[in-house]
């Protein structure tokens, strides 16, 4: 069975696990090609205008997969990956949004992913929502999935081991690793000779340490990771500068950025916020990034 896997949203963080889960259950993953202009335009045409950029991109990938020869499309409903912490409402409603704009063209495989459930319940949910799974094999692959993901997370090391200033580029994985959406931000930074750190380069303990500085624990997993990493940079001087990347209209980020800005205003580490949407142009973005890096380098001289 050929199952479409959109190269968008959480794919960027979980692709090793997803591909493993697919293969061990006898599905052939058909991953969409990287984001391009056509995909974005298709996504824009399918979405409500106020939806955030990552979801528009996601819809574009869904559309382009729907045009290929696939038997089903994998769009999970990601509710929670940690206890008492959730994903943003768009992840919760994603399968409904996709079904709404695609109609019944292609069967959707949309299991509810809620890791605060017991493993048994997750297993049952998988069987219920993907009726093509073999119970025993699914149980085994579920067990190995966690191991693979842990190994994937431990592999984090600085993206470009340059010698220059350390810049933490913090944001959601689908904004940081989708080169079309952020105009190759990580490459631009690497060319400017800085060492880039992303959320994945911080260990769980470091993020927990940073997040302890919050007055109330955040209930969004990703937002909490970003805040934790940013606060850790402040507390331990782990980076010389921090760039926050957010998509326009992102609900959680609107508050998270404010919290981080308020905190950084009292300290000496430079902070820059980049807001992405479908109207962004690369020249303006590159200029801002260059100016930021120049400023970091000149701080030593002046």
């Amino acid at each position: 069975m050929r199952v479409g896997l959109p190269r968008a949203l959480l794919y960027f963080k979980y692709y090793p696990v997803l591909e493993q889960l697919f293969r061990s259950n006898g599905w052939e993953p058909v991953v969409s090609t990287p984001t391009n202009k056509r995909k974005l335009e298709q996504g824009l045409a399918l979405c409500e205008d106020e939806v955030c950029l990552p979801v528009k991109v996601m819809m574009g990938h869904v559309r382009s997969l729907a045009e290929q020869d696939i038997d089903a499309l994998f769009v999970p409903r990601v509710v929670s990956l940690e206890r008492k912490r959730y994903f943003c409402p768009k992840f919760l409603g994603l399968p409904d949004m996709v079904r709404c704009s695609l109609g019944n063209e292609i069967p959707l495989i949309s299991p509810t992913v809620n890791l605060s459930w017991s493993r048994l319940k997750i297993w049952q949910e998988g069987l219920k929502s993907c009726n093509c799974l073999k119970p025993w094999r699914w149980w085994l692959s579920l067990n190995s999935a966690a191991r693979i993901h842990r190994r994937h997370l431990q592999a984090g090391e600085p993206v470009s081991p340059g010698g220059g200033k350390r810049v933490a580029v913090l944001g959601h994985c689908y904004n940081i690793y989708d080169e079309y959406v952020n105009f190759g931000l990580l490459n631009t930074l690497a060319q400017l000779g800085v060492t880039v750190l992303t959320v994945e380069n911080f260990t769980r303990e470091q993020i927990e340490e940073g997040a302890r500085g919050l007055s109330k624990d955040l209930f969004w997993s990703y937002g909490r990771d970003v805040v934790g990493a940013a606060f850790y940079c402040l507390a331990r001087g782990a980076a010389d500068g921090v760039i926050l990347v957010a998509s326009f209209g992102c609900g959680p980020d609107s508050l998270i950025i404010e919290i981080i800005q308020q905190r950084f205003a009292r300290f000496d580490i430079p902070l820059m916020c980049l807001t992405l949407d479908e109207h962004a142009a690369d020249t303006g973005l590159v200029t801002r990034v260059e100016a930021f890096v120049d400023m970091l380098n000149w701080r030593d001289v002046c």
């Binding site: 109330k216 209930f219 308020q262």
Partner: peptide, 22 residues
């Protein structure tokens, strides 16, 4: 008021508090 998410309302108070304090 407070809240437990995933709506933003649950974190209003903390953000407003930080802004007013600043």
């Amino acid at each position: 008021g407070g809240g437990i998410g995933p709506c933003r309302f649950g974190y209003y108070a903390q953000v407003q508090k930080e802004i007013l304090a600043s």
